[in-house]
Each structure stands twice: as structure tokens, then as C-alpha cells.
Design a protein around this nucleic acid. Structure first.
Lengths: 228, 228
DNA sequence: CAACTGAAAATTGTCAACAATCTGCAATCC
DNA sequence: GGATTGCAGATTGTTGACAATTTTCAGTTG
């Protein structure tokens, strides 16, 4: 994966139809928390905001519904989905299984260049940790997991994993994620990368699965404090 | 999960909007092979067929696109997706990981009643095998895997698994699936159910994963015969 | 004063028409 | 003759209008 071809605006408009653009836009709105969990999404409002009619908006919303970011009730409209602790737990169960697979495949297939990139990412997170820059650490953490699933070399796996991750992000927006221990998190990352560099696929898989399990435990800890 | 509440047509129309109904209808068309892989899907034609305007059709198609059953090119329309051997391979890699998780969870959580149902299903497949009724075996096999993922007690897992299975079905329609050995397949089923009944979650997981791997191998065998 | 009734307003569901683009084919040019 | 151009015809993309339903809220009633 060399740097992206930097698509021009022209190409963007020529290849992506309006619903596709709107889809991406609304997704960002949700993932950035500008549309809060449980909130009603008004079609006309969005149409006005994006300067289109309601048709393309509705098409985008159907796609978002299928992707699980939004739920729809007839004649009442669509609402940003709310993820309960139980649902997050279900997702984590799947994520653990996928993380094991990812760790395994990355250890088998990652190029030396990719391994270097992973090491760089971990080093950056270390930096953010020592600076206590939680915001930056969070962003880097997302990027790290994005990279690693990419390096597993299975496009369908990437897609599946990102779908689940997005829903989990929806949950994090409730402010429950991260029981504070993000220094611990990065030691886990380091161990994973080390196993990958050693081409130990079984260990890498186990470690990445365990990392997901730890992340789940941190969620529970945070959820236990202020949730059901 | 007791028997489904048997929704009346009235309730169906009142709760599900037209796009949702159309979505299910087109999905069946694709999964039954009436819309062939790679074939162009004509919006107006479908609108005529279902007696609606193109709006709801388009919304349904966007959802189908997100679910991966259909691909869309701007100003050229949507096409039923073609799954290459490489893509099927990617999906199987994920499916193996999920099957392991499923086997594990079912062994932990299945009720005695559910285990009885699994045994019944396997017996029925035995019957179909001895009668050499391939069609029936195929249907029962799908039902068996549907049941087992359901009994794992993780709704999100069910959803994810079915999404992947549907895409694989798309591939099977090319006539590549089933290298003939469906008698072998059922001995694998029996072993899985036995491990579940014994509450041996590790073994059940391993066996179900191996079953998926065997299924993948059978696909490769069939694909090797007449494909790239 | 709480509960109900019913009309107005807001919102979603569906449609039919129009604009933009692609496809196929015949006419034209070199 | 082969490539190019230009024109129907078909198909998709988008829009604005109208129908159906829900929500809101003032007025009424017990």
C-alpha cells in the first residue's frame, strides 16, 4: 500500500454518486458525535445542509442502516443507534476472534516495510503516553489497529473488522471507553509487534486476542462505574 | 427462541416499509439465482415488477450494496456481485475463525432442547444422504448452520456470520461448490454435535473450524476443476 | 386539575417528471 | 476499410410535489 493516489475533486464527483458522498458525510457526523446516540436524524435538515433533495439522503440512510450505525422506524424516521453494554460485549466477542486471526495473518504476511511502520506507530504512541496526550493516543491507537488489519492482507477481513470497530466507536462516544490504562495498552502493542517481527504467528494471534480482551475488560470497568 | 410469532401480512406492511420489503425480495431473487452473478439489475423493470416507483427500489439497492450482494457503477447501474475464488478464500478465512467461536459458545450455552434439535437435524441429513437427495441435503445443511450460529447466543455474531454466508452462497451459484463429498460433511456435523452435547467447548470450536476448512477445501477442489 | 379530543404542524413515504449520462448504431471522414 | 463523430434510445441521477402518518398542543370535559 503506497500512498493513496490523491483523488481530485473532479474524479471524486465523477465516480462517487451523491448518496455515496452523503453516506460518508453522515457517517463522520455520527462518529464525531455531532449526531448523538439515540438522536433523531431529520431528513429535510440534512438535505438542506448538503444542498440536495431528500432522495439521496434517504438512500444514504438505508445504507447506514444496513451498516448498523442507524436504526429506522416506519413513519418515525431514523435514529442514531444506541449500543448497550450487552451489545458491545457481543461485538467484543467477535472482535477477539478476528483479532486472533489478524495477528496470525500479519505475522505470516507483513512485509519488512510494514513491520517498520508498526514499530514507528508504537513509538509514537509511547511518546503520546509520556506526554499524557490522551486525545493523540486515542487517534494513534485507531490508526495502529487500522494498519494492522490492513497488513493482514485480507480485504474482506478489513471490511468486517472496520464495521464492528465503527459500532464500538459509537459506544465509546458514550464516554465509557478507556478505563484510564492506556500506558498498559501500549505495552501490549509492543509485545504484539515483537511477535510479528519474530514471525511467530501463533503468539501474535494470541497476544492480539488478549489485547482485545483487555480492552473489553477496560470497557467493563468504565461501564461498571456509571452504567447498568 | 420459541417458534416465531407468525407475523400477519397487515403487521408486515405496517412495520416494514416498502424499501425493506423490496430489499428482501431482491435478495431472494439473487440468492435463488434468478438474478445471475454479474447481471445488470434494471431499476425500472424491478419497479414495474413490484408495482412501485423507482425510489424504494433505489433505497433497497443501496442497502444491498452495503451488504455486499450488489455493486454499483455511477450512471451504469448496479450489478449482481461476482465472487472470485480469491474473494471466497478470504471469506472462508474469516468464516473459519467465526466457526471456531460459534462452536465454543454453543457448547457453553446451548440448552438441552437446542441440542436435541441439532441431533434431529443431523439425522435428517443422514436420511437425505442415504437417499442421495443432494438438493435436500443442501437445504438442511444451510438450516443446520443457521441453527447452530443462532444457538451461540450472540445476535451480532449471527448477523455477521449470515452476511458472509450469503456472499458465499453467491459464489456457490456459479456451480463451483460441493466437490461431491457431502456424506463426509455429515460425519463432521455429527462429531461437532457430539462435542457440543459433551459440553467440550474447545473441541467443538476446533471441530467446527475444521469443518469450515474442509468445506473450503471442497470448494477449491471443485474450483480447480473448471476455474482459474 | 388531570385526562381526553381533535385539528394544525411537522415529518416521513411514495411518486412521476425532468436532467444527465451511457450505449448502440449509422453516417462521415481520412 | 478502419476510426471517428453524432444522433436516437435507454437507463440512471435528482428533484419537487403530494399522500400518509405521527407529533404537538390548545381547547374541552369530567
Amino acid at each position: 500500500m503506497p500512498l493513496a493516489p490523491a483523488p481530485t475533486t473532479l474524479q471524486l464527483v465523477q465516480t462517487n454518486s451523491l448518496p455515496a458522498l452523503v453516506y460518508a458525510e453522515i457517517e463522520q457526523l455520527i462518529l464525531r458525535g455531532e449526531l448523538a446516540s439515540g438522536q433523531h436524524v431529520n431528513e429535510s435538515e440534512l438535505a438542506l445542509r448538503f444542498g440536495t433533495s431528500r432522495g439521496p439522503i434517504r438512500e444514504a440512510l438505508r445504507a447506514l442502516e444496513e451498516s448498523g450505525l442507524v436504526r429506522s422506524e416506519k413513519h418515525r424516521g431514523v435514529f442514531v443507534r444506541e449500543i448497550s453494554v450487552a451489545e458491545a460485549d457481543e461485538i467484543y466477542d467477535i472482535r477477539e476472534a478476528l483479532d486472533q486471526l489478524i495477528g496470525c495473518r500479519v505475522a505470516e504476511r507483513a512485509t519488512p516495510q510494514q513491520i517498520r511502520e508498526l514499530k514507528t506507530a508504537v513509538a509514537e504512541m509511547d511518546e503520546a503516553t509520556s506526554l499524557k496526550d490522551v486525545k493523540r493516543y486515542h487517534a494513534l491507537n485507531l490508526k495502529f489497529h487500522d494498519m494492522i488489519v490492513d497488513f493482514a492482507g485480507n480485504a474482506r477481513l478489513t471490511e468486517t473488522y472496520r464495521l464492528l470497530t465503527k459500532e464500538l466507536l459509537l459506544f465509546r462516544l458514550r464516554g465509557l471507553q478507556d478505563g484510564g490504562g492506556f500506558a498498559v495498552s501500549n505495552t501490549e502493542h509492543k509485545a504484539v509487534v515483537k511477535a510479528i517481527a519474530a514471525r511467530d504467528s501463533v503468539l501474535a494471534g494470541d497476544l492480539l486476542r488478549r489485547h482485545a480482551a483487555e480492552s473489553r475488560a477496560r470497557m467493563h470497568k468504565a461501564a461498571g462505574r456509571r452504567d447498568e
